[in-house]
Design a protein around this nucleic acid. Structure first.
Length: 393
DNA sequence: CGATTTTGACCTGCGC
DNA sequence: GCGCAGGTCAAAATCG
């Protein structure tokens, strides 16, 4: 009996990615059969005649037709991958340009303490976004997402843009911000009480304890994401060093320390949201004292290294806990994320091209992935999130 | 056997 | 000063 190899070898430079694409291809083929509602032999009609003449089984004919279709699909996918790779490179270039501007802007943010922010008029320019904002306690940072796509080529998907409000308009506290009802446990206050503890001094941990230089204070980023696993995969290595049950939330809070480099002061807390157990609240603190892994470098110069590393972590947060694979998935997911933030249609394409069963939360609650709150060293906080692109969580 | 996780104890800051 | 809550330590347990 003749053996026909229908396997498609698509090399995307990443095994998992290639695997998911291949699986997706198979799904496409199956879906096509259903959608067309006609025998698949029909497309290979010309061949079928000759095949019948040579008394070849219809099964072989259908397999041939299927193979042809898959080849075409393969070509399309290759083009898509090339296009995405090219976009990714362009975005990285723009990101670097933004990174050069960002220290200046970030310093502005850090120089404003909690009290200093109240009523302060902030004029910030990041990328092409310029805004004048009168703030009450916090400001919102939001990924620019232009549904019309007119502003899609600005690389703003990685930038922080102060969401403008007309003067005298107060910005509401975001529900994403981790802050208790007394307003004392949240980041705003914590920034003010951030001190270097003797134990940290003994351990050589460089806590940003300065009370006079806000820029030296620890930057903290709180991120909410829908995640089934115990934690998110952000490309960094973390070691759990403690767990506590915080008051008011039955879900334990886990404490992790970065172990990529010895002595790295970055820590993160992971806790499930009490209101919605599917939401994982991850809070990062500190700055990495080492180069981030490949997958975690793409956004390393946003507000903090931690903020950067988590931004694309969101995509990998599905079933994959960091413990089962340290592969920086973000290395290939970030371009999709970046595109999504400016191209909802691209995001949709990515979703369709990925194996959605492996990214359940990503697929169904994509908008939530892009919300995070952050607090710079000065006690102010921001939050950004991609605007919804059709699919509600 | 080394790395990681678990878990109770301990430390620190804050409010009363 | 005391109690509470959050955060960290470190020994024991577990995992690969």
């Amino acid at each position: 009996m003749k053996h026909i190899d229908l396997s498609l070898n698509i090399h995307y430079g990443d095994d998992d990615r290639a695997e998911s694409m291949e699986e997706e291809e198979e799904e496409v083929v199956e879906r096509d059969h259903v959608d067309h509602g006609e025998p698949k032999e029909k497309e290979g009609e010309g061949e079928e005649t000759s095949m019948q003449n040579t008394s070849v089984s219809p099964e072989l004919v259908s397999l041939k037709a299927e193979m042809t279709r898959m080849k075409e699909e393969n070509v399309l996918l290759r083009k898509a991958v090339d296009h995405i790779t090219k976009d990714y490179c362009e975005l990285q270039t723009k990101l670097e340009a933004i990174q050069q501007e960002q220290p200046k802007n970030h310093q502005l943010v850090l120089s404003l303490g909690k009290n200093g922010l109240e009523g302060a008029k902030i004029t910030t320019t990041i990328g092409n976004a310029r805004s004048t904002t009168t703030t009450k306690r916090s400001f919102l940072c939001e990924v620019d997402h232009d549904p019309a796509g007119s502003n899609s080529d600005l690389g703003l998907s990685l930038g922080l843009q102060v969401q403008s409000q007309p003067d005298s308009t107060e910005i509401e506290e975001s529900p994403v911000v981790v802050e208790d009802d007394k307003g004392k446990g949240g980041w705003l206050v914590e920034e003010n009480k951030c001190q270097q503890r003797p134990r940290d001094l003994a351990a050589g941990i460089t806590s940003h304890s300065s009370t006079t230089n806000p820029a030296n204070r620890k930057a903290r980023v709180s991120i909410r994401t829908r995640c089934q696993g115990p934690t998110m995969n952000d490309g960094c290595q973390w070691r759990k060093y403690g767990q506590k049950i915080a008051k008011g939330n039955p879900c334990p809070r886990a404490y992790y320390r970065c172990t990529v480099a010895p002595g790295c002061p970055v820590r993160k807390q992971v806790q499930r949201c009490m209101e919605d157990m599917s939401i994982l609240v991850t809070t990062y603190e500190g700055m990495h004292n080492h180069p981030l892994p490949v997958g975690a470098t793409a956004m390393a110069s946003t507000a903090t290294n931690a903020a950067a590393s988590t931004t694309f972590m969101l995509l990998s947060s599905g079933e994959n806990s960091m413990s089962n694979s340290q592969m920086p998935m973000s290395s290939y997911l970030s371009p999709y994320l970046q595109n999504y933030t400016s191209h909802p249609s691209t995001w949709h394409n990515f979703i369709n091209s990925a194996d959605s069963s492996r990214l359940p939360s990503l697929y169904h609650q994509a908008p939530d992935f892009f919300s995070y709150s952050m607090s710079g060293g000065g006690g102010e906080e921001g939050q950004w999130g991609a605007k919804k692109s059709g699919r509600d969580s």
